[in-house]
Amino acid sequence: MSVRTVVTLALTALFLENFVFTRFLGVRAVIDASRSLRLVFMNGVVMIVLVGAAAPLVRLLDEYLLMPRGLEYLRLLVSVGVLMILSMGGEELMRRRLPGFYDALHAAQPMVMTNTAILGAVLLANQENLSAPQAALFGIFGALGFLLAALLFIGVRERIDMADCPGSFRGFPIALITLGLLSMAFMGFTGLRLW
């Protein structure tokens, strides 16, 4: 895998096809997690590990088990299953071997399980016709993109909380509007042609 491919993958996943801003995946998770910096990082770390492991696995399963036998219709189910097994298995493993990590990351688990960006990352990495290591990189950079989006958003949100916002917009509505404005800024990256 050349450096060029890695950079291309990184730019694509981080900016060009940022899950949150251009695909609108994981919006709820971003809004939920932006309550605190800790939550954002917890979510980000869990997502990087989970997607980094699941994306190549699903890619391999797809390539060697599903595609040759015409079982593409199982792709979604298999992705969900692999994610479930990995997250539950990882949690169990952490609980037994790394209780410190478990305590720190356990609270993020419900938020991670309902994070559409994770399933989205796995499915998208599969669609792009990448090799397994490339799929892993795409997933990890995608998760980093999610982290970037959440970090950008938490900064803006701090200002919104202080601002004198009209009553009808306060809270969730203004959060969605802000996210929309941020995503418009990200639309500017579509001018980059890399693929």
Binding site: L65, R69, L71, L74, L77, V78, G81, V82, M84, I85, M88, G89, E91, E92, R95
Partner: peptide, 21 residues
């Protein structure tokens, strides 16, 4: 048959994990 086996296998692993935790 393979599809059924695959799904049953995943269900089995998940059930085992749920039992463990």
């Amino acid at each position: 048959l393979i599809a059924a086996l695959l799904l049953c296998g995943m269900a089995g692993v998940l059930a085992a994990l749920a039992l463990l935790s």
